[in-house]
Design a protein around this nucleic acid. Structure first.
Lengths: 155, 155
DNA sequence: CTTGAAAGAGCCAGAGC
DNA sequence: GCTCTGGCTCTTTCAAG
């Protein structure tokens, strides 16, 4: 089932505000409730819509500080990665975790209340597995943050 | 109004699934619908819950590639940043954009369909403002990605 | 905080164009 | 694909304990 322009417009709306009613979305894309509802059901069934979540205010829940951690490792085997990935998955302060190309092997985005709290997470990280080199960069300002993917390429 | 443990549990649930009904959430935190609904209203009014969004599948909308772009600039004045920030805000492929401490001045997370598509975004970036140095790192694997903030520090 | 009730909105499935 | 129609669930507010 390919995606048409109406589907893309529905997705664009839901990416911005998942609390919109089916009727409201239908109205904006030129559909009545039922066909709009069926399209949304399909998008969910196909897994294109993964989930609906609430986004909280970082400052209100006391994690104003964003830190990027770059990691180099000397061990590049699957077993090492599995251990490390499992350990990192359990750290709630780590929001993003990528295996990279280039000189840096792994990149993590971490949110914490303070530099001291970051140090505790750092210690926990290096206790999981052997890391060759760890360097941290602190974000001074979050200029843009969105979860909305570009839909220009879809379909 | 300080946040208590029940509020934290409500937030934890909504961060994972914002489609849960008020009755369902109430049941899980040991509240009936009415007081649970009032708490959620308060959390929204206080801005602790910023918004509810749908998260889409990156591959389904054809942006499987994540690229981190590190930028150094020679110009560190407000005017330059304003120009650059405005330009970047209009690029839908840029999901995150931070001003950093350390040797790198800015860090961007970009999603695109392919390396060729990234090159187009890159050209657009360098056309916005004068950049001293731009380096790109490609993500080979997304090991963890969550929008759920840690609630251990809140309240 | 609770329960219970009640109005309204919204969801979801049917039949039919 | 679409609309229309109805029943049902959920949300949201109220009163009262």
């Amino acid at each position: 089932m390919p995606m048409d322009d109406v589907d893309r417009r529905i997705l664009a709306l839901l990416q911005e505000d998942a609390a919109l009613s089916v009727a409201e979305i239908g109205g904006r894309v030129g559909l009545s409730s039922t066909p709009c509802w069926r399209r949304i059901q399909n998008l969910e069934k196909q897994g294109i819509i993964r989930k609906r979540v609430a986004l909280l205010d970082r400052r209100a829940v006391e994690v104003p500080l964003t830190v990027f951690v770059m990691i180099r490792t000397s061990q590049h085997n699957d077993e090492w990665l599995e251990t490390f990935a499992k350990g990192v998955a359990d750290i709630p302060e780590v929001l993003e975790f990528y295996r990279m190309s280039g000189t840096v092997d792994y990149l993590l985005r971490i949110v914490v209340p303070s530099v001291e709290a970051y140090d505790a997470v750092y210690k926990r990280l290096i206790s999981i597995a052997d890391l060759a080199e760890v360097s941290s960069s602190f974000a001074m300002e979050e200029i843009k943050y969105t979860t909305a993917l570009p839909l220009t390429y879809a379909g």
